[in-house]
Design a protein around this nucleic acid. Structure first.
Lengths: 216, 216
DNA sequence: TAGATTGTTAATCGATTAACAATC
DNA sequence: TAGATTGTTAATCGATTAACAATC
């Protein structure tokens, strides 16, 4: 049963919700009607109390002794994360990384609908990758503002990242998923979410170093 | 001046250190001999006290009124993150994403040296991408164990991620940089660092939702 | 009923931020 | 010296975890 009491969730909670969704979709495939918080927790190597806390921020109420209804929980997480009406997005930079993201069909089930791409390479302009047409970067401002696309996926070379960003902001983009290693300058009301590979690599190296130190 | 008192740093600290390094390398190019914590903080939109705390966990001592020596700080962060002797790594899965990472020359300056790649596509086997030779996946166990490569970059399709992981573990891999959306099962002593795009996307969507709600 | 699992309230933990004496 | 910036110690903040009454 849904409930109006949705809280503004913390970032860590928001990051975990998609993984719950994936467990729930599996459970549904197996014909399970309900799941307990400890079931989800076990699958993801988390604590059940954490799962319960996270779910509570979506406003869904479970049933003591039973757990949570699988379809209801799927539904509430999907709408909570905005997966119900996938938002249009475009890719700036159709290199290897951009192409990888275009091919990542998984995004459609996760609220993102990539509708077009831009690149400066005249070899690529006019072609399609996984059904997504590539336009020349010169067309970005006009096309994006006319189509009113809010979300940009930035996969251009670092050297041009800021310039391209400036154009995207002019075109009315409201959120940028930044795969470059540039710290972008944008107006305060523009959301930038960076996928920071170097930070991720640093934690891997650091953990490996600790593990080697403690084992030898 | 370095100091023996290196603490085990927190994950958030480790994630920020590479960004300090990037600011410092820029500063060095501009000929700056010292920087203050507030200089770094300003560049990265952080608080100076946080920068100072993070630096203190590397053991480097600054000078009141002066700040930190740029070359010393670069040096200490590089060795702290293990960038001094770059570690060998291989890529499992030479698709778009794998190729993008092979081309990402930036990693060499960040402690990672990608030495070979594996794929099942016979069209790709034997070719090179950015100087990195692609071998058939069948050769993985033998080659990786003989060359004693500790770090794997996993960019195979989700469906085979666990199988390939099992082989890599058998081959003696100690750390896996996981770009798939699979929650891998590995022995306790194997480090897995996952780049969770769906979690990152969820925070972007959530922030965008908040921003739209508060503006309208 | 008995017992499994929930939601809530409180305790703990760890990271960030503030305050400030030390220092060159 | 005066003042900018450090390192340390304490306070705050927020997330996680624990405890437990409520409930079907």
């Amino acid at each position: 049963m849904t409930n109006e009491s949705q809280k503004t969730p913390s970032i860590p909670t928001v990051r975990r919700l998609p993984s719950y969704l994936s467990v729930l979709r599996d459970a549904q495939k197996q014909g399970m009607a309900t799941v307990s918080s400890s079931y989800i927790a076990k699958k993801l190597k988390l604590e059940s109390i954490q799962v319960r806390k996270d779910i509570s921020s979506t406003g869904l109420i479970g049933q003591p002794r039973i757990g949570f209804s699988v379809p209801e929980l799927i539904d509430v997480i999907e709408s909570f994360l905005g997966y119900k009406n996938a938002k249009d997005a475009f890719i700036a930079g159709a290199g290897h990384l951009g192409s990888a993201l275009m091919g990542y069909s998984g995004f459609k089930g996760y609220g993102l609908n990539i509708v077009l791409a831009f690149d400066v390479d005249s070899q690529k302009v006019g072609t399609k990758v996984d059904g997504i047409e590539i336009f020349h970067l010169d067309k970005l401002e006009d096309l994006v503002s006319r189509l009113r696309i809010n979300i940009a996926i930035l996969t251009v070379p670092d050297a041009v990242a800021q310039n391209v960003t400036d154009v995207m902001v002019k075109a009315g983009v409201r959120a940028i998923w930044n795969f470059t290693s540039v710290k972008l300058s944008v107006p305060d009301d523009i959301i930038v979410e960076r996928v920071d590979l170097v930070a991720s690599l640093a934690t891997l190296s650091s953990k490996l170093k600790q593990s080697i130190l403690s084992n030898e």
